[in-house]
């Protein structure tokens, strides 16, 4: 269980407004309903987005868990990077980091290519 339980809790929070409301008012009672390790329970409760990412929570679930806690998109991406620094590589699943220049540098490179006439917007 464990990682499956973490993901199931997040899935149910994403789908069910009543469960979301309960999570806000009686978080420990909601967490008691899932088979979670001490580490998982703490990461969910805080929430520690970086650790949840490293544990292997599917990104399509985790990004909504971050949004639920009003974590803005670029902050969400940074928290995952911080998680890698603090806890090491992703332990499970298919959402591992593979290395990227970053959106700002990527945008700048694409803009330079467009200015140089090397690329059209569209085919």
């Amino acid at each position: 269980m464990s990682l499956y339980g973490v993901q199931k809790l997040i899935w149910q929070l994403n789908r069910d407004p009543r469960q979301r409301a309960r999570f806000g008012t009686e978080r420990d009672a909601v967490l008691d309903e899932y088979e979670l390790s001490v580490e998982e329970r703490a990461a969910l409760s805080k929430p520690d987005i970086g650790l949840l990412y490293v544990m292997g929570v599917n990104g399509q679930l985790l990004m909504h868990y971050a949004a639920l806690h009003n974590i803005e998109w670029l902050d969400y991406l940074q928290r995952m990077r911080d998680g890698l620094t603090a806890h090491g590589p992703v332990r499970a699943g298919v959402y591992a980091a593979t290395g990227y220049e970053g959106i700002a540098a990527h945008d700048a490179r694409l803009a330079a290519e467009r200015q140089g006439g090397g690329r059209a917007a569209g085919l």
């Binding site: 980091a97 593979t98 959106i103």
Partner: peptide, 11 residues
Amino acid sequence: HWPATPDSGKI
């Protein structure tokens, strides 16, 4: 694409 990872934006 690598959505919802730290590499989101990589193409």
